[in-house]
Design a protein around this nucleic acid. Structure first.
Lengths: 191, 191
DNA sequence: CTACAAAACTAACAATTGTTAGTTTATTTT
DNA sequence: AAAATAAACTAACAATTGTTAGTTTTGTAG
């Protein structure tokens, strides 16, 4: 029964993420979620413990992947531009793997209760590491002397909202996107 | 009494937009809004007709400004890059004027009821005009032969999310932002 | 000062919310 | 086949939701 339970549980998480993307956490009721899964609301509680826990699990899981990933990248002994490209690739890969979860992370993080502080820490850590890589690129002369804040904002925002475009199934293939975005985001600022 | 009524009404709209930005439309109750204004929930209805109308007014107002603005720009007899710069400037200006409203437009448009179709039309019109300007720039040789979809996505996403950064009061001044963003977004793709 | 309208209030409503209790049906283990 | 566990169900709860009705207070005009 273990595999079956797990798959039902995961079905609930995935369905929840999809609904959260469409209407936002607050506008999705447990009855909506249950109906989308094909059961009654009360039955959800055989698999999950609360609505809040669903959100928490979805967001924290992704946030940890991002923070761990950028940590690995930043410790590699390569130049800053290579690191930036790796960060962009990671972003595209993780988003393609879980676009609905990314939407929840982007739009509903403020509805986290118990795990809000932890999430905010993960996010700060990610942004700081990202910023350090950009700064490193400026210091080493790999990047033009652009405003770090603006560059950071522009790249991060584009990457964070990838979930809006990626699911438009196959219009853009992943490899195309990695190449195209890397060019678009970096070519203007590389020396 | 007319001016007083209007100012109270506008205070409600402005406060609502701020709360919508912080928690999203669905998570803001009429009691939250009333408390933020300093009155009781029932008293709101002396000034507005429904929660839905507040959202509608906030979003449609901005959406119309954007669509009218880009229409004016696209009919000017200049090159595509000049037009693109004008679009970027308009975006920054309108966002700086009303960052909370921009947040509502970005995040809560799907909760529009009566005006949803109208909003979606405005948005399509805006995106199509934007795309036409980019295409014009490619055709005339002003822009590199980049993937139009990716460039469009990248620029539009960055501009649409400006509201997240602009209110960080004065860190970046408006002129700085216009210049910096224009460089960051366009310099890499200009020939 | 009186009369009137604007804008606040209290109280309540019907609907909907997340969640729990208790029960029945399916499925797995022995 | 019996026993045990998992997962569905119905029914209900207390709280909260947007909104209305009716009343009182406030401020302005005659």
């Amino acid at each position: 029964m273990k595999t079956n339970t797990l798959s039902r549980k995961q079905e609930i998480y995935r369905t929840a993420a999809r609904l959260f993307k469409e209407k936002g956490y607050s506008a999705v009721t447990m009855r909506d979620l249950a109906a989308a899964v094909g059961i009654k609301a009360a039955s959800l509680y055989n698999h999950i413990s609360s609505k809040q826990q669903i959100l928490s699990e979805i967001i924290i899981d992704i946030a940890e992947q991002f923070t761990e990933g950028i940590d690995t990248i930043t410790h590699q002994k390569t130049d800053a531009v290579t690191k930036l490209k790796a960060v962009i690739t990671q972003h595209i890969t993780l988003t393609a793997d879980n676009p609905y979860g990314m939407a929840a992370l982007n739009n509903d993080w403020m509805h986290l209760e118990g795990k809000l502080d932890y999430y905010l820490n993960l996010r700060s850590q990610y942004e700081n590491t990202f910023k350090a890589i950009v700064q490193e690129g400026k210091d080493s002369g790999e990047l033009k002397d652009v405003n770090v804040e603006i560059l950071l904002y522009s790249i991060l925002t584009t990457l964070r909202n990838l979930y809006l475009w990626i699911p438009k199934k196959g219009e853009l293939k992943k490899d195309e996107l990695i190449k195209g975005l890397t060019v678009t985001l970096l070519q203007g600022v590389e020396k």
